[in-house]
Simulated assay, not measured.
Amino acid sequence: MWKKLILIILIILLAGAAFIGWRFFLSNTNFSEKSKYLYIRTAHATYEDAFKTIQDSNFIKNPGSFDFLAHRMDLPEKIKAGRYEIKNGMSLSDIVRMLRNGKQAPVNLVITKLRTKENLAALIGRKFECDSAAVMEYMLNADTLRTYGFDTNTIIATVYPNTYTYFWNTTPPAIFQKLYAEYRSVWTPERKELATQLGLTPVKAYTLASIVEEETRALEEKGTMASVYLNRYNTGMRLQADPTVKFALHDFTLRRIYEKHLMVESPYNTYRVTGLPPGPICTPSLETLDAVLRAPKTKYLYFVASPDFSGRHVFSETYQQHLLNAKAFQQALDTQQAIRKAKEESGIK
């Protein structure tokens, strides 16, 4: 009799243990994707809000069991804001532990070429809890930027194309602290010395590199391109860089710059203002920056697109030679357009 009772009790206990194990320690996710993200906002970092999101989004199969386990593991008192990756196949125990320990999924901020503060703010606003308006507010706060030695025009000089890893709820100041750390690591004593030899500060070198970045994609001619602008800069000539006009107009769709465009009143219009613009016009690559810092010594003052339409340029020392090069390019362009027009009229694709 007693043996039979003990056996029944053991069976019940084993069944209960199996149920608990199945319910709390085996897969309990309710989606087919590889993973889904749970966002807990800083302003609403409460267990109640997080639990409602878990319920409404059908993250798990058994919300009631999750709630039971969460209270047993003190999650309501330890919930933390952030972005959490719930992977397909996770158990309730795994999810509760992840949230209780604040083990966020990192966010990668991938910066390539950006042109304006608005572009950067929009990128950050899409990736993080803070919106673009908060980022713009930070970048327009002159007092804050002054502590880093920058202003509202030069703040982009802290931004180098790279991949930066943060947590989703990182604030704008913390985001820029990491960008500033990258800026400091880029400007090694060697690069600072090279800039000094050119008569440039790091920010001015970066600004010049931003112009070169916009002028040519050909790495092999970026140094020569930089030498043209350095020669103009050092002799007091206006840089007359077309990309600065596009920046001044905030119209980056322009394919050609006409006389009407050159009239825009802006400190960035280097057809009207002598010297470098007050800040970068894009975020240049490190290769472009190094090409500027190691620009060869030349006497070139002019350049024009190559007539072979390779995307490269022809350089010249005198204005007379430049006019001949420009004429050669224009003739090649006229010929190309005539051929294209003839094909269109004949119906040839």
Rank of each mutant, 00 (worst) to 15 (best):
Leu69Asp: 00
Phe150Met: 06
Thr207Ile: 01
Ala209Lys: 04
Leu7Val: 11
Ser57Glu: 14
Gly16His: 15
Thr152Ser: 13
Ser266Gly: 10
Gly236Phe: 03
Asp49Cys: 06
Leu198Lys: 08
Met237Val: 03
Asp67Lys: 11
Pro284His: 06
Pro106Asp: 09
Glu317Pro: 09
Val273Arg: 10
Ile95Thr: 00
Ala142Thr: 07
Val107Met: 13
Ala70Tyr: 00
Gln336Leu: 13
Tyr160Pro: 01
Glu85Phe: 01
Arg97Trp: 08
Phe252Asp: 05
Arg100Tyr: 13
Ile257Val: 08
Leu38Cys: 04
Met90Lys: 05
Arg232Ile: 04
Trp22Gln: 13
Thr196Glu: 12
Lys3Arg: 15
Thr171Asn: 11
Ala181Thr: 06
Leu324Gln: 15
Asn231His: 07
Lys3Trp: 15
Glu344Arg: 14
Lys260Glu: 00
Leu120Glu: 10
Thr42Tyr: 07
His71Pro: 02
Gln240Glu: 06
Pro243Tyr: 14
Arg272Leu: 08
Asn119Ala: 12
Asn231Phe: 04
Thr235Ser: 14
Tyr138His: 02
Lys103Gly: 09
Tyr302Asn: 04
Met1Leu: 15
Ile11Ser: 14
Gly347Ile: 13
Gly199His: 11
Ile281Tyr: 02
Thr112Val: 14
Val304Tyr: 01
Ala174Lys: 13
Leu254Pro: 07
His261Ala: 08
Ile257Tyr: 05
Ala338Ile: 04
Thr288Met: 08
Tyr148Val: 13
Asn108Trp: 07
Ile6Glu: 07
Gly279Met: 00
Pro284Phe: 00
Pro189Gly: 04
Asn162Ser: 15
Phe150His: 07
Arg312Tyr: 07
Ala142Val: 09
Lys52Met: 09
Asn325Lys: 12
Leu69Gln: 06
Thr188Tyr: 03
Ser285Asp: 08
Pro76Ile: 14
Ile9Glu: 05
Cys130Asn: 01
Thr171Asp: 09
Asp334Lys: 09
Leu262Thr: 01
Leu286Thr: 05
Met98Glu: 06
Thr253Glu: 03
